[in-house]
Design a protein around this nucleic acid. Structure first.
Lengths: 295, 295
DNA sequence: TAATAAGTTCGATATAACTGAACAATATGA
DNA sequence: TCATATTGTTCAGTTATATCGAACTTATTA
């Protein structure tokens, strides 16, 4: 690797100022130094960068390519330094948060707003995952923190888990649904004729496990909890929904919770983060999230 | 920019060999030089890259980021040199050929095969365009050479055009189409009831001009000449097609050419290339294409 | 506890990067 | 047309710095 970033800045300056002399001036060097640098680079790379035509020098095709791509290299180099510098400040360059669809996104926005006040320079990325999705995201390093989702089947090296909330699932239907007039508690037989709304698992690798489908029944697969709530609101089907995401809909009567014989378990929702290499931002979010749990 | 590619190669070697001493060995330097380089880089960048723990040094988080992204920078730098070197050999690094859909792709494959024999190292990219598409592609530097398509309305700086073939358009229908029994020459009135197959213009900017649609008639828009031929073969509609692309279908009787009163003009197909900075590959292809014209 | 190995410090040295003056080539303009 | 400014190159001299080697510190290990 004979190429140096310094030589590229010289090339860049030459092209921008239109002459070796101009480049020398902006770089606080002497013209002969510029000549030296260019000649050395040409010698090292083994091809001509400038075609000397009289006193003026013009880029060869190869020189044009070198300059064009070299400029991208220079900005990339600056980005690398900036990223490393950001990390050295204790704040990560980037923080990826994977949030399970059972979580109420409304809860997270105030946290994000508060975080922005810190002017940390951290690029925060939020992704919404379903079921196994959060777990997979953090294991595959696509996420630094997960909010919601199941705990790992077996402990994972370097990842810490903490239970945050107990999602209480209710069997709900739209307000004008036929099942609202059926005698409660319902049996599985009662629910069988109606379409079951199922959230498609966003985990690509984990074995498919349809969520809370009641035996073999017609299903409508949707992509997120929000879509499932909407689908059930529209009367497209029935199914279990976490109480905390639909409380206002229950209060307004748009959705009705029915008792049913089928187990409607309380699922533990977990927060996960990497115990190694935790930057300030990850630490900040984990602290805040665990504090919210105590409320 | 205090960062140097040399320092990054040192970091890379340290991490790969697991020690300063190992890095020194593979780089044919003395251990103290490695220490010096690392300390200088840390000093220049203003943050610690290694945490000295006893006699062993481990990367700080910032150091990890620097190394990780620095490695990408190193391969990028090698790519830059490789590209420039390729161009300096006279062959372009890349050659983008935009081919109009009226062209028979079969004609181009032998040319590509012959070119590969040259072992030029040029990455050839073919794209298929419709109508204004080739013109737009070369003007916007997305293509270096175009095959087929219209000439420019006004001359374009730095781009040369040459007429290559005259595409002769025929009004054709499927063999069992009702129009085959109608008295010829057909009038526009005769054709009006039938769906017109129209190729969607792939040029995004140029004003939309539906190609050869006969007045206001039901249209089926397709994406390429191949699709249009298939659509007409299936009897989905009627329209003009270039003779050289359907000759075998006319011979076999699957398509039937009908005379019609509407003008069925002979359109000039043009080859275009940039007259400035023509590398060997572009020159080679242009020469071959213009030679084919004379056959 | 000695021996080994790794990393650092520091003075010396060789390499390279840079400077300034002189010069050649070309454009500018009176 | 010819002087004049401008540009790029050459080259000898200077400065800076990357590298080396030896001595030393600190851990690991035998």
């Amino acid at each position: 690797m004979k190429l140096t970033l310094d030589a590229l800045t010289v090339l860049d300056a030459i092209e921008r100022k239109g002459s070796f002399a101009g480049a020398a001036e902006v770089l606080f060097r002497v013209p002969s130094t510029v000549t030296y640098t260019v000649q050395k680079l040409e010698d090292d790379l083994g091809f001509a960068i400038f075609k000397r035509v009289g006193r003026r020098s013009v880029l060869t095709p190869a020189g044009q390519v070198l300059l064009e791509q070299g400029r991208q290299l220079l900005v990339a180099a600056q980005d690398v330094v900036a990223s490393a510098h950001q990390v050295s400040s204790g704040w990560e360059a980037e923080l990826n948060i994977a949030i399970d669809t059972v979580w109420d996104m409304q809860n997270i926005y105030p946290l994000l707003a508060e975080f922005q006040q810190l002017n940390s320079g951290v690029q925060v990325n939020i992704s919404e995952e379903v079921m196994g999705g959060t777990l997979e995201a953090i294991i595959e390093h696509r996420a630094d923190i997960t909010l919601g989702g199941p705990p790992p089947v077996s402990p994972v090296q370097g990842i810490q888990f903490e239970s945050i909330i107990n999602a209480q699932w209710l069997f709900v239907v739209a307000q004008d649904h036929p099942l609202t007039t059926a005698p409660q508690p319902l049996t599985e037989q009662d629910a069988r004729p109606y379409v079951s709304i199922v959230i498609r698992d966003s985990a690509t690798q984990s074995p498919i496990r349809p969520h809370r489908s009641l035996g073999e029944r017609p299903m409508l697969r949707v992509a997120s909890m929000e879509q499932k709530i909407q689908a059930q609101l529209q009367g497209l089907g029935v199914g279990f929904l976490p109480r905390h995401k639909i409380q206002h809909l229950l209060d307004s009567g748009q959705l009705v919770a029915l008792t049913i014989e089928i187990e409607a378990p309380v699922t533990q929702q977990y927060c996960a983060w990497r115990s190694t290499n935790t930057g300030r931002a990850a630490q900040w979010f984990v602290d805040k999230i665990l504090a919210m749990k105590d409320l």
